[in-house]
């Protein structure tokens, strides 16, 4: 079975030549949740944007391949690539308020995408939207469809975007910190919802997060990123049972746990950071050589 998403040796640079992605390789199998975890600046959102073809113009991909269901995104013409990405992927963004147009009602925002990108009839799109709103447990779809984004709570807005993401039956969803802005109790509901829909629809998810707690609950596979480099990749269960990389262990020790307050919240050791810096430097040195 071919992977839903297969990224191989992806590197990206800024105009000043600084590498922001360092030969990233990862695969997401159909129906699997792969977590991308790292701290700010690790490049986890960058990978999601690269997959969706929405990298900022200053970031240039300089090597590597991205295969979406076996189709090489790098070899496609821009228009064909956009069509393919639009049909097979979707995004659940971090901040639903900026992702929604504040001056339009929810209903047309949700159906437009289905009509314009997938060429569905308005009626079909409308039916599908209502079905998905039901699946995300929105009890009064009429009211929500007629609402403007600011009239809904944060949790409701995120439900709307989850419904919109699943509506087009994408094969892959990039979820970029989808619960970071939410309260813990709402976060739990939203994670439950994403997990249930993901299982039901067999959708693969690239789940970007900084929270190891969320990683443990939602994902089957995980890639740990630091400075644009995958430092560890494992089955989620294996990662939490026996983290291999010193950085992964340090991250785990730094994450607070109410069950073990004094064994957690350990500041990251300077030696770990020094080791990481050396690892990154060595990787860059090795990488520059073939390119002169």
């Amino acid at each position: 079975m071919s992977a839903c998403l297969d990224i191989a040796n992806l590197s990206a640079v800024l105009p000043n030549g600084q590498r922001v992605l360092r030969s990233v390789s990862l695969a997401v199998q159909p129906g699997e949740v792969r977590a991308l975890v790292g701290e700010s600046g690790a490049g986890k959102t960058m990978i999601g944007k690269a997959v969706l073809g929405v990298l900022p113009s200053s970031v240039r991909l300089v090597e590597g391949d991205m295969l979406l269901e076996g189709e090489d995104l790098g070899r496609l013409q821009p228009k064909a690539r956009r069509t393919l990405i639009g049909a097979r992927t979707a995004l659940i963004p971090q901040d639903p308020l900026t992702a929604l147009n504040p001056s339009r009602r929810i209903g047309p925002q949700m159906t437009d995408r289905l009509v314009r990108i997938l060429g569905w009839s308005g009626e079909k799109a409308d039916r599908r939207t209502r079905q998905l709103l039901d699946e995300v447990q929105i009890r009064d779809p009429e009211r929500v469809l007629k609402s403007y984004p600011h009239e809904l709570s944060g949790g409701m807005r995120q439900r709307v975007l989850i419904a919109a993401a699943f509506a087009a039956e994408p094969r892959l969803i990039v979820a970029d910190e989808p619960t970071t802005a939410l309260d813990v109790t709402v976060q739990k509901q939203i994670l439950r919802l994403i997990a249930a829909l993901q299982r039901e629809h067999g959708t693969a998810i690239l789940f970007v997060t900084h929270d190891l707690g969320v990683v443990a609950k939602i994902s089957q596979k995980v890639s740990v990123l630091y400075a644009g480099k995958v430092v560890e990749e494992a089955d989620t269960a294996a990662l939490f049972a026996a983290p291999q990389h010193a950085y992964t262990r340090a991250l785990m020790a730094a994450t607070p746990r109410y069950t073990d307050p004094f064994a957690s919240l350990k500041p990251v050791d300077g030696a770990v950071l020094a080791g990481l810096a050396a690892e990154i430097a060595a990787a860059d040195l090795a990488w520059r050589r073939p390119h002169g």
Binding site: T185, Q187, I218
Partner: peptide, 19 residues
């Protein structure tokens, strides 16, 4: 209790997402 129960601890708990 709900607040405490909603914290995702960084450890595997297969039943956490079950309703």
């Amino acid at each position: 209790r709900d607040l405490i129960g909603a914290i995702p601890l960084p450890e595997i708990d297969a039943g956490w997402l079950d309703i």
